[in-house]
Design a protein around this nucleic acid. Sequence first.
DNA 1: CCTCGGCACTAAACCGCTTCAGTTGCATCC
DNA 2: GGATGCAACTGAAGCGGTTTAGTGCCGAGG
Lengths: 339, 339
Amino acid sequence: MDRRPTIADVAKLAGVSRSAVSFALNGRPGISEDTRERILAAARELGWQPSRPAQALSRGRAGALGLVLSREPGAIGADAFFPAFIAGVESVLAERGDALVLQVTGPGDEEAVYRRLASDRRVDGVLLTDLRVDDPRPALTTELGLPAVVVGDADGAHGLCAVSLDDRPAFAAAVHRLADLGHRRIAHVAGPQEFRHARRRRQSWEQAMREAGLPPGPVLPGGFTAAGGASATRELLGLGPDRPTAVVYANDLSATAGLAVAQQRGLAVPGDLSVVGYDDTPLAAYTHPPLASARADAQGWGAAAARALDEVIDRGRADDVELAPAELRPRASIGPAPA
Amino acid sequence: MDRRPTIADVAKLAGVSRSAVSFALNGRPGISEDTRERILAAARELGWQPSRPAQALSRGRAGALGLVLSREPGAIGADAFFPAFIAGVESVLAERGDALVLQVTGPGDEEAVYRRLASDRRVDGVLLTDLRVDDPRPALTTELGLPAVVVGDADGAHGLCAVSLDDRPAFAAAVHRLADLGHRRIAHVAGPQEFRHARRRRQSWEQAMREAGLPPGPVLPGGFTAAGGASATRELLGLGPDRPTAVVYANDLSATAGLAVAQQRGLAVPGDLSVVGYDDTPLAAYTHPPLASARADAQGWGAAAARALDEVIDRGRADDVELAPAELRPRASIGPAPA
DNA sequence: CCTCGGCACTAAACCGCTTCAGTTGCATCC
DNA sequence: GGATGCAACTGAAGCGGTTTAGTGCCGAGG
């Protein structure tokens, strides 16, 4: 008995037909309560679970969602967002025993990956993250008839359902707080501007600056990386007497690196320079000084995205979802502007 | 024409039987070069790809590997290892168009997840990571007939193929370097000792201490977390005049938090305290001071594990793999012992 | 008493691919 | 010139489920 049990074994053991087993398993009517229990008992006894490939084939439904990560292999570990996001997706899928299929790819063959995913029938839909400006993927998935949901705001979603989370309140809170503390020159170290979320964070910062009646300070590219954050900070600190007294970074990684650069230069944080990150990584509360940051519920985001995608798959469409906005976690890296 | 093309459509277009298409696709003999090309052209024209569920069903092979992450949802983002590891796994799978199926679960229902995975037929094998002491999973997968590979050393692998990476050289290098710099009291902030890799890192540190002729200093639990690293460090620094002059942490997260605690106390790093991490996270080179750490090739590890698991699936077994050991990246957080 | 409807269940087709056992046509060999 | 062999292909069964179209039985209604 090397072979795993099939539905036929269960049927034989329970003394019914294969279809009866299928009906019982899927809670269909037309099976008496007695029989249903006998069948389920038989299944339990044999340790039988329906074969997913077989189910997928006959139902025309893979029972899996796809997530394509297209990043440089090196940068892949830098992001605390994805693990939490994925955990959220899983929390929804796990209920139904569905799975998440992950594909990691370079930016180059992204399109091919989606095409394969679409004709492969391995997933029922995909989550689109890290949307870029002029991202071809929304149109592509539509063309391919592959259900998709955009993780991020509706701009550029091309009519797809978008599950978004507003980061403006967090940037507004940070900038206003800094303004209240007397800062007038507040810089931004931005993420790669080909990404919509990076661009949006930058815009959120700009808008907050305008609201606070401050001239938008210098914006430097930080690439979401530690190296980028460090070199942007070096440049900012080299600006002379008019250098910014506060920097709002696009993420914690570049912010933490910036923090270190400032300290390496002998500057006190927040005495000489205030610093704000974004993401509220596990480390943020434990840097020296603790890094003010913004907390977005990545896990909730994943769960919401998975639910939305489910709905798109089932009903063809779903309403956009707006999650609770990111919240500023003020910490000691923010202080009064230097005199 | 809403329906996606099937092998029958390709066969019709190419004017051959369905089996011919299958043969051509899978590079089997018995199809002339001409016909093969005609078939492939037809497939290309229709944009046809074989349905994975159908292939899986008839081949009895899912064409997917499973990875179960059982972590607290909160801790999930803290680890830079997994994203890189997963990228490595993918690099192997992508060649064949195979996929990685991810399951995230709490430690509680781990066993159920593996049981389901085994009878589900959704994956052909699983990668076992984060092995614990007395981990039930190796025995469980063996019992279930689910091919598996242990990511980590062979201890506790229960006869399964293990893909390991020696961290001893890195700890030895760190401790010896510290010893050479005059440090005599070197502490260790350990990871959760129920994990074999955490335990092993601790042992590596101990062994290195013995080799250096030093009495193993205090060992405190750091839980691989920032909070744990911070509180362990606070405790170490409270030990009075005999407090350690150097701390070797089990990972970068706790080390970075420890660094911050020391600085918060007004201690200079490395002037008053030397600090070493492990993992060489993207941030390590950009902290203040840059954090000495040990670099393990997580991506290569993932790739090797995937290849080993493939072999186990195909041939029933595979030889253990020993990867290039982790290497110390000495950085400015290490310095001469205080006078 | 006969028919009718509905419940509980079965038989068989079907999902899309792989694969094994043939079948055909053609060159080869004695 | 008939057996032999081989390359190139076809037909049909099978993978393990789901689903549709029945079938048999029983109680109710006229």
